[in-house]
């Protein structure tokens, strides 16, 4: 195997590009793809303060590394979900990464700051763990970005993630989700701007990037992920990709180029119904935002059945201490 660029010995093949790369040129390709995504979708300005959603996994550490190497001011935010060893190990990876590079890592802890952990909260609210987890992370990242005065929230979603989510949403014609599945969501109505600089890289590439950069990320999988739909969609797409390399890229980028705009009116209609959450002030279409509803159910279960049927807005607010509320 020879490197496409220098003809030296290659370490990795990228079938979608029909190319092999040596270490140096693979890392350069990753940087180029990220820069291209940033430019193509106007993700970041050089003077922006970015808040990176850090899980300790390959994608979030890769994107944090790529942005700080490129000279962006990027702090990390880690949310402790209380998922046993997995959370302890992932927090360790996030902290070591930040320490070694002198980067700022903000931490929020669901149990300490809000009184419940993700597994018991999801159970109490009768939600699939990943759905409770997703809404929790979105809420806390949005809030931290707004309170900390960040210009943009960066997430590590890669091409495989986006293609799988698109596939799932199209299978069920979740047109409201399709309307929002973009690599950039602009700031509006109290939500911060959100960007996904890794959309042009597959997850094998983000993992390889970490290995070749010596980034120690958490390889262990979250124990709550097993059997979720998202994984099944990834597998289905990988089957197709195996016989037809480039399918995932064309599927996602074709959607962005030719279909995404058709769903925009649906996203607009959603925005018109937004008002401040009675519990925390975050923008929501209901009286209480999804996170306050989750917190209410999760902590009520903890206090014993029947206690506090109504959510106490002040309690929710005062429970929200720590670095996020301090605007660190």
């Amino acid at each position: 195997m020879k490197c496409r660029v220098c003809r030296g010995p290659a370490v990795i093949d990228v079938r979608r590009q029909n190319a092999n790369y040596c270490v140096e040129h693979f890392l350069r390709m990753c940087r180029d793809q990220v820069n291209k995504a940033i430019e193509q979708f106007a993700m970041l300005n050089p003077q922006d303060r970015a808040l990176v959603a850090v899980s300790g996994g390959k994608d979030s550490l890769a994107v944090w590394d790529l942005l700080s190497e490129a000279g962006y001011e990027a702090d990390g935010l880690y949310v402790g979900l209380g998922i046993g060893d997995y959370s302890d190990a992932s927090r360790g990876c996030a902290r070591r990464f930040a320490d070694q590079r002198g980067l700022e890592l903000i931490e929020v802890d669901l149990l300490e700051d809000f009184g419940f952990d993700l597994p018991s909260g999801a159970r109490a609210a009768r939600r699939v763990p990943c759905s409770a987890c997703g809404l929790t992370k979105r809420h806390l990242f949005d809030k931290a970005a707004v309170q900390g005065g960040y210009d943009v929230v960066v997430t590590g979603h890669n091409l495989d993630d986006e293609a799988a989510v698109l596939f799932g949403n199209a299978l069920r014609w979740h047109t409201d989700y399709l309307a929002r599945q973009l690599p950039v969501l602009p700031e509006r109505d109290g939500f911060p701007k959100k960007v996904k600089p890794l959309v042009r890289l597959g997850e094998r590439e983000t993992a390889a990037y970490c290995v070749l950069r010596g980034i120690d990320y958490i390889v262990q999988e979250c124990p709550l992920a097993a059997g979720n739909r998202h994984l099944g969609y990834k597998e289905a797409l990988n089957e197709i990709e195996a016989t037809s390399p480039g399918t995932k890229f064309d599927f996602y980028f074709g959607f962005l180029a030719r279909a995404a705009a058709l769903f925009r009116p649906i996203a607009e209609a959603d925005h018109q119904n937004l008002a401040g959450c009675l519990g925390c002030g975050a923008p929501t279409t209901a009286e209480l935002c999804a996170f306050c509803r989750l917190t209410e159910r999760a902590t009520r279960a903890g206090r014993g059945a029947g206690a506090g049927a109504e959510v106490d807005g002040a309690a929710v607010l005062s429970a929200h201490r720590g670095p996020v509320a301090d605007g660190a």
């Binding site: 370490v11 390959k58 994608d59 997703g134 997850e203 390889v219 979250c222 992920a225 998202h230």
Partner: peptide, 24 residues
């Protein structure tokens, strides 16, 4: 280790999965 390499009897290698499964 590239796909076309040959591993020797004395080698120690890790085979690491790259597909992560969380909701996003």
């Amino acid at each position: 280790v590239p796909g076309d390499a040959t591993l020797a009897d004395s080698d120690v290698v890790e085979v690491r999965p790259v597909i992560s499964g969380g909701a996003v």
